[in-house]
Design a protein around this nucleic acid. Sequence first.
DNA 1: CAGAGCGGTGTTAGCGGTAACATTAGAGCA
DNA 2: TGCTCTAATGTTACCGCTAACACCGCTCTG
Lengths: 323, 323
Amino acid sequence: MSHQTVSRVINGHPSVLPATRQRVQSAIEQLGYRRNYAARALATSRTDVLGVVVVSTNLYGPSRTLLGIEQAAREAGYWVSVASVDADSGTQTETAISHFMDQGVDGVAVVAQTAVAVRAAARMSGSRPMVLVASAPVRSSQAAAGLVEIDIDQWLGAELAVQHLLELGHRSVAHITGPAKDLHSQARTNSWRRVLAEAGLPEGPLLAGDWSGESGYQAGRELAQLEPLPTAVFVGNDTMAQGVLRALWEAGVSVPGDISVVGFDDSPGVDQAIPPLTTVRQDHVALGAACLERLIALIEGRPAEGFLLSPNLVVRASTLRPA
Amino acid sequence: MSHQTVSRVINGHPSVLPATRQRVQSAIEQLGYRRNYAARALATSRTDVLGVVVVSTNLYGPSRTLLGIEQAAREAGYWVSVASVDADSGTQTETAISHFMDQGVDGVAVVAQTAVAVRAAARMSGSRPMVLVASAPVRSSQAAAGLVEIDIDQWLGAELAVQHLLELGHRSVAHITGPAKDLHSQARTNSWRRVLAEAGLPEGPLLAGDWSGESGYQAGRELAQLEPLPTAVFVGNDTMAQGVLRALWEAGVSVPGDISVVGFDDSPGVDQAIPPLTTVRQDHVALGAACLERLIALIEGRPAEGFLLSPNLVVRASTLRPA
DNA sequence: CAGAGCGGTGTTAGCGGTAACATTAGAGCA
DNA sequence: TGCTCTAATGTTACCGCTAACACCGCTCTG
């Protein structure tokens, strides 16, 4: 019996007699044979490994997206190699992608939050299938061939949040931003601005944060001292929103009595905030799965298109119609 | 010029003339040559890749630990392949480890929270260096050769929390557990029990949770109705603690006036809880780094020993001496 | 009944590196 | 000057697998 027959059995090639297949399989079992992936990769130049570059894994969203990608990959028979890099380092992003290419990964996914990272990814794209999870300011048009962009629709998420407040009857909606360089933060802020403008309302007070609870707290303190107090605030993410809730509570401003608060993310625990936080839920795991579906399509030579997943609003107790 | 010389230049072999080295390097530059990792792996049976199996990546701690491992790995010149598996599935854990072995990883790290996963890992250990990040009930003794166990000291963490309450003068300390199968939960509960016993105090009320905010909320409601009300509660993790805070607030029980609350993890946002939560901080990223240090020692044939990192108490506003 | 066609299996030649050994040229020494 | 010795480079033989082709014996067809 030749090694070739063994190879055929392992790869499920059709033209092997059932009896032979049986014999080979039991021999494999008995000898505890395991095929050598390096040799296979060398011969086929396929690895069944995908490279995933995650920018700022320390945040809730990206780490969840990674989980989604990893799980979907395993289900599809792929394995995942990860690299997490700093948000501001285009160099790190490039190095990581380039290494993955060297390693011979079948495709690359980049989960990016900043324009720097997006540009780095775009620069490295082309030689191999790549899916970019990012809310880049300009889409498709600038994307190289074989580069697909996907994300959760941040614009829609912010719109849902602000629209919810307007529908309750609020006429002055403040906003607390995330870091200026963060694409999601930018999208949410722009969308907040647009919805207000389209409703013919003046732009509410704008305060800057950096995603952290502490920055939310500081912004909340400033907010509490505004004259007149806005009746609602759309906070860039939930962690900051917790800080806002605390600052308002300390200042004796009632939520949602005096002011309504909406967050973004539906991070764990905010359903237990005081009061439970109305927020925008993003299904990061589904995003990861969608990312992978497209990446596999590209790998298999099928066309794939960019896409925006819709987030949805979770209404809890922190929003109410204004007094 | 032969490929062998090129190989020598790439691998930094000493016996190459500086002039030759230069020439080769500029040729590499010019041609954009990249060595093929699969071929190298085939020839050397080294891959510079580490496999990391993470049990329940959806939790804050494990995902942070993964981040720590990944970063330390990259710094050490290794790359990381990850697989996240269900907490209760020993089979999934085994499959993942076994696959990594097939892939030819140089070493494996397993981040486990349950006894099932720990046993699966122990079963698969031996053939290759492996570090187990887990608080297994029995340590070292049962570990196979070449298997190192490491974790953050859960017993100490719980001790710090309960001791802090006792030092404030509390005499009845309730506890809310995590999932029964979770090793960290078990360790924290056991430690709570032991500290109370050693202080000659009666065991306070014990309530069961499952790490979720909602379960903390339910437990908090039960807690609020106890007669007499304990003056302090040690909650198994921060997410549950947020639920407890809300339940107590709803029930009109003041924190820390009527009851002190201590959490565990120092998850993002709890510094902004109402009131800011006293909790036990664990440096998961440092844990990941420590894990990697040991794994590399094993790979390089140096001895490595298990270790418990010390967590520390972060005192905020949710604890106070009893009235 | 010869030849074509085909399913099942074996043979051969790489994939792109590295280890080990072979070779060469120049330095050092008697 | 001839010899040994050594540092720098070249040659060869794999690592373990799969693609492509060769082969064999059978069935089917004219």
